[in-house]
Nucleic acid binder design. Sequence first.
DNA 1: GACCTTAGTATCGCGCGGGTACTAATTCGC
DNA 2: GCGAATTAGTACCCGCGCGATACTAAGGTC
Lengths: 207, 207
Amino acid sequence: MPVDRQLAVLLVRAPEGSLERWTLPWAPAPGTGTSLDELAADVARRAVPIAPGWLEQVGAFADDRRHPGDVALSVGFVGAVPAGTRSSLGEDAAWFPVAELPALAPRHQAIVAAALEAVRHRLDLAPIAFRLLPSSFTLSDLQRVYEILLGRRLHKASFRRALQAASLVQPTGEWRSEGRGRPAQLFRFAPRRRGRRRRGVRFDLLG
Amino acid sequence: MPVDRQLAVLLVRAPEGSLERWTLPWAPAPGTGTSLDELAADVARRAVPIAPGWLEQVGAFADDRRHPGDVALSVGFVGAVPAGTRSSLGEDAAWFPVAELPALAPRHQAIVAAALEAVRHRLDLAPIAFRLLPSSFTLSDLQRVYEILLGRRLHKASFRRALQAASLVQPTGEWRSEGRGRPAQLFRFAPRRRGRRRRGVRFDLLG
DNA sequence: GACCTTAGTATCGCGCGGGTACTAATTCGC
DNA sequence: GCGAATTAGTACCCGCGCGATACTAAGGTC
């Protein structure tokens, strides 16, 4: 979830005697036949009070980088929960901004790195940014999330034009006054599937 | 690899007594600590005479869809080998166009589907199309590969303009006459890293 | 030599993206 | 109270990328 202009990662306190003090939430594999997605949803349910609005696998890791549980193979997942999900977490869990992560087991570091890359790559294929916000939000909120995830500033007018053209949001009619400045209108995520435009090939991202 | 206007998948003959006649090339996991990428490269090396120019993980699969080896968890990989790699394959392996795949174990079907999606999603992040062609190729060849992978026709002039602007290819100076029609100039993949352009957010692919 | 087929280029128009600048509505400081 | 600061939202302009159309080039086939 986003916490003041940064993405934050949920960590849980490691058991006594571990090499690190914090770990990613994880669980050992149960009996055969369980879907990985269900298993990941279980882990998430145990870690945060509300279900993530987006949850996706980022890959399997089995090299010699150490996992806290010393398991041979780990399957990493990323999820998104709305900003403001800090209440009722319990003492054993906390959000850490990605730039200030505590020491993690090497394999967990790799998983976090892969998760961040996955988020960036799937940002325009899945409604990740919307799942990082509460159900009603301002357009400036939304733009801030995109700027956090992309790591660069965006042009306000272009952002809104593109958003409008894709008809992804609906105004709720309510307005929110956030301290100083003009109040902003609240929107909700309400995609009305227009025929998606097919554009040319992008060579400029290659390499 | 591309085979007459379609992508083709390499399958190997299943051992006697299996439920299906063909399977994806696969190997059981060895002892702990082996990198998955090395393992995948090994499997590829055993399956095709030349090393794939691109190889990437597509994810882990552990639901109750059956794997021919009845393993609990499988990690799928995709690779790309140049068109024309059909010689010296041996009798136990063959290329099948994706539209005419024989019956496969359910988990292998899922892996193939995920692999195709991965190819499409990473097409403009990794030089996949170039790895599906021999080291020297015509621009029409390249465009055909992109059209196969994207599943739609592309505009010739736009395609070449964008390619030129990204300075990804160099003319070799040679020309190839392919039956009828004007001979085409041969190019090689020679990316000269220009500063990649940062463009706006795409909302139109979302959903 | 007429015609087909494929390669490659030129020109034009439209729409998108981004820069700049503007208006609108609220809080803060004095 | 009133201006300054701050944030929201819009208007205009310009350049470029994309796609349509049409054209030239160079080889085959009959």
